[in-house]
């Protein structure tokens, strides 16, 4: 990986002060994500994977260590429209059409009207929702809604896509299809993607790098660079290599749990 680093965390710590005392959400996290990588964060609840993603998005403030996004602080990166964020729920506004929802960030960021229309068309194409712009969210299936929310995150051309369990609420069949489409989208756009998930197969299928995390305190226990080729049909999941990586991930998760 000779690509320039996009996200760099060094000795990152985050402690929440709660009524029951301090909670170590992140402890001494060191991680570098290079441009164009697809990184999955995997681990049980409470391991800090979402918290780490929220730190990158400047939605949480680390209490120690350093974190740079595109060479800037997370706050600055946000002001430069450095990333698009996709949440677990599509969170589309029910009172806006699909096109209106995708236009939302563009309106807020002050894109011109004609530019807005062009961008909405383009990202609708990108997530294969062309022709659905005039529909309202309730007229679309859950999978289509989540695709629309990805389009919304892509609309303003951020180089980084932060995805927090975006397919966690969808059924397995829809999830497989969206995973496949996401890989295609990634190949076409060359974005850097940080993706949080609970699912081992999902993580192994998508990633160029898998970050295994464990809870109490939230920390990284293993970082696996995937040897899988960039072009991945769904049935790669039955290959020897795939199963071996999945095995290593499982071992990493188990190791993290022995500390309990």
């Amino acid at each position: 990986m000779l690509n320039r680093p996009v996200i760099e965390a060094k000795g990152l710590n985050l402690t929440f002060q709660t009524a029951d005392g301090p909670v170590h959400a992140l402890k001494d996290v060191d991680l570098t994500i290079a441009e164009g990588e697809f990184v999955c964060f995997l681990g049980p609840s409470g391991c800090g994977k979402t918290t780490f993603l929220r730190c990158i998005a400047a939605l949480e403030r680390p209490t120690g260590g350093s974190l740079t996004v595109n060479g800037m602080t997370a706050d600055e990166a946000r002001k430069q429209r450095g990333y698009g964020y996709v949440f677990q729920a599509a969170g589309l506004y029910p009172w806006r059409t699909i096109a209106g929802n995708i236009r939302l960030p563009l309106e807020i960021m002050g894109f011109s009207k004609s530019d807005q229309t062009a961008r909405v068309e383009r990202v609708l194409d990108l997530v294969e929702l062309a022709g659905f712009g005039k529909k309202f969210p309730w007229q679309l299936s859950g999978g289509m809604q989540q695709r629309a929310s990805i389009a919304r995150a892509l609309a303003f051309d951020a180089d980084i896509l932060l995805m927090d369990e975006p397919f966690g609420a969808l059924d397995e069949i829809v999830r497989d299809r969206l995973n496949e489409e996401l890989l295609k989208l990634w190949a076409r756009t060359g974005k850097t993607i940080a993706f949080v998930t609970h699912s081992i197969p999902e993580a192994v299928y998508l990633s160029t790098k898998i970050v295994v995390m464990s809870p109490r305190p939230g920390r990284i226990t293993d970082v696996i660079d995937s040897p899988l080729p960039k072009d991945r049909p769904l049935d790669i999941r039955d290959s020897r290599e795939f199963i071996e990586i999945a095995h290593r991930v499982r071992e990493g998760l188990r190791a993290g749990h022995q500390d309990d």
């Binding site: 969170g91 009172w95 939302l104």
Partner: peptide, 27 residues
Amino acid sequence: HMQLDLLKTYGASEGQTFWKLRLPASL
């Protein structure tokens, strides 16, 4: 929270949050 966080990631101002999210949601 999620909807408010989403607007935060866009760097939306308080006024924008009101007009684009809070007000329509309250109708």
